[in-house]
Amino acid sequence: METMWIARQAGGKRCMRMAEVEVERTQYQLNKELAQMLKGGVIMDVTNPEQARIAEAAGACAVMALERIPADIRAAGGVSRMSDPKMIKGIQDAVSIPVMAKCRIGHFVEAQILEAIDIDYIDESEVLSPADDTYHIDKTRFRVPFVCGAKDLGEALRRIAEGASMIRTKGEPGTGDVVQAVRHMRMVNAEIARIASLRDDELFQAAKDLQVPYELVQLVHDERRLPVVNFAAGGIATPADAALMMQLGAEGVFVGSGIFKSGDPAKRADAIVKAVIHYQEPTVIAQLSEDLGEAMVGINEQEIDLLMAERGK
């Protein structure tokens, strides 16, 4: 990863001095490492400072600040955009844990704004309306870290090539239906296993098939994993959902609508945090699943017209 990073930077910007390349590479490394610190944790969607404080008290390792949670975005329809910076700042002031925020796919000015207000992580997210139907943001131009969604290995590696320092499944946000997160996680894992099983001389063709740089394929082949942290996101509504994603290989989970669309958000948030730690212990997850009140109602995948996961490939 590191050699590729230097090579690509040097090739793309020939006049760039090595010292500057080194600074950019260091920032990217630090950004990947922040994601490492979030591992084993739960990142919760919040829409105001009060929810942010509830999330922090319940044990969230970070919060995602947004004006409307995905379930409401889906219900309201229309174009959905980056949140009001003032609202995001209110959440930054309310908690001490990292604060993330979403920008539209390809909307690099929204990303510039989020960087300007000192956000800890940007989610270039399919949950918002895409601003560009061809290009994602060139995330190598930013110092702030990005997390991006991916349905399969090719998508994950393309986002990493563009500078993403963390990956999540796309799931199908706002539905409370975990089926797509499961599908994406299994797909990425299966493709990693396939790449790992290839002979060295087969990796060139694999890179062509996946439409990604050869160096990234080689890394996946050698390390048998993505070169960045991989979380599950989309449709996670219960402690069992969270534990399911962890058993499938997620390194942590994002919970969006599942918490603040449920009957008792604080209790559910706390239970999901603990289910992520004890994901291999059914007796603990059973206890955690008791008396949580009403889960979010949810919509089945087949009942929805708009598949957000199909945004951005």
Partner: peptide, 14 residues
Amino acid sequence: PGGESTVQGKLLRE
């Protein structure tokens, strides 16, 4: 280890 102290501290206790 490193991580979020608010999360780790709460869980240590609970």
